[in-house]
Computed example of a mutant assay.
Amino acid sequence: MTLTKDYKVLSCDLDDTLLREDMTISKYDSRILRELQKLGVNVVLSSGRRAYDIENRFKQIGLEKDGAFIIGSCGCEIVKVDKMEPICTKVLSNDTINVVVDYAQKNNLNLGRNLFHYSIFISQFKEFYYSTTHLVYTCQNPYNLEHLRITNIQPLKVDYEAIRKMCLESPPTKLFITEDPIAVSSKILPEISKVLPLSSRALITKAYFCEVIPTDGGKGPALQWLCRNYIHCEMDEVVSIGDSANDVDMLEMSGLSFAPSNSFDVAKKAAKEVLNWSNMESAVGRMVNRVFFNGTFLMTDEEKADSKIE
């Protein structure tokens, strides 16, 4: 099998793009991504999730770790996969932390962050290991339960001052509010955007999920930094695919970009092309087949059944 296009990077979102509704990855998507990596294309998994979680998906697909990279936390962390070594991290300022906690507390909103423990072992080389302890939250609601389901992390309920103290002592890459989708889009996003410092911005990454990240974060800038400093290519040599607001800058900055049919309108508008296939129909693999293999990487009968394609 040979490549028909000379792109050097594929940057792929996870939730609602590569991941299906049951949090699995299709057999076809996994096989074609392994083949693409073998042929020398850098397969970069880019997600709003933290790097340790993305690494689990890396393993699930069966991708090689040497020379591979992960973009996590909506572009606020870039990690070398072989040793899970952070090479670029951006965190929220103290001003942003205080503003977000105050806003959530005033409006009795569920505010959350991931609480991590980092253990570092130093031998001839420095090795970094990520492990998570809890998903910290302030209020219980159906949307928080859904977030816990898709992340599969142990919950830890705390009050607003406790989460403020945690964040000021160990600044997070992002904070998130999980609430009713109508409230998130019509009230929370516009209100919090007005009071945030210039060093941060808010975006909706799922209908019920409003995230606050550093202004200079984002998958697009992270991917550009990675290409210039480690992969040594330009953004016009990058193919990307994503479905949500946190994919917009990546989709706009890539040489070629796609949005699955199930994408938010903002992603469809940002992408160079909207696909006819959803995340439930192996949109990633079918796009890769068309762009990189000129349609020659065919599905097996088993893969068709797995992707529910007749």
Rank of each mutant, 00 (worst) to 15 (best):
Q60T: 11
V91Y: 09
C76P: 03
M23D: 10
R286D: 07
F128E: 13
Y208R: 00
N144A: 12
Y28S: 09
K187E: 14
L148D: 06
A222V: 08
L226Q: 10
S170T: 14
V79D: 04
D236F: 12
H147N: 14
R31L: 10
I204D: 09
D180K: 06
V81Q: 05
S278D: 12
W277K: 14
T132H: 11
G255L: 01
D53A: 15
T96M: 04
V238G: 05
N94D: 15
A222M: 06
S170I: 14
Y129Q: 14
F209S: 09
L198C: 09
S30D: 08
R34D: 07
E161P: 00
E77K: 03
Q140P: 04
A267T: 08
G40H: 06
N107P: 03
E85A: 05
Q140C: 11
A68F: 04
S200D: 10
S240A: 15
S73E: 15
I61W: 02
I54H: 03
F58C: 04
C76Y: 02
G255C: 02
K106H: 09
S244L: 09
E211P: 08
R49G: 11
L135R: 08
I78T: 14
I32Q: 06
P181D: 10
T296F: 04
G112P: 03
D66I: 06
M1I: 10
Y28V: 08
K304Q: 13
V212H: 03
D29C: 12
S261I: 10
L135S: 12
A270I: 12
R31P: 07
A305N: 05
C210A: 13
T205A: 14
E281L: 02
S307T: 10
D180F: 01
H232S: 08
I163N: 02
L256F: 06
R113N: 11
G62Q: 05
C210Q: 03
L223D: 02
Q124L: 06
V248I: 10
A104W: 02
G75N: 04
K106L: 09
S47H: 08
K304C: 14
F69L: 06
I188H: 01
E55R: 15
P172W: 04
A51F: 03
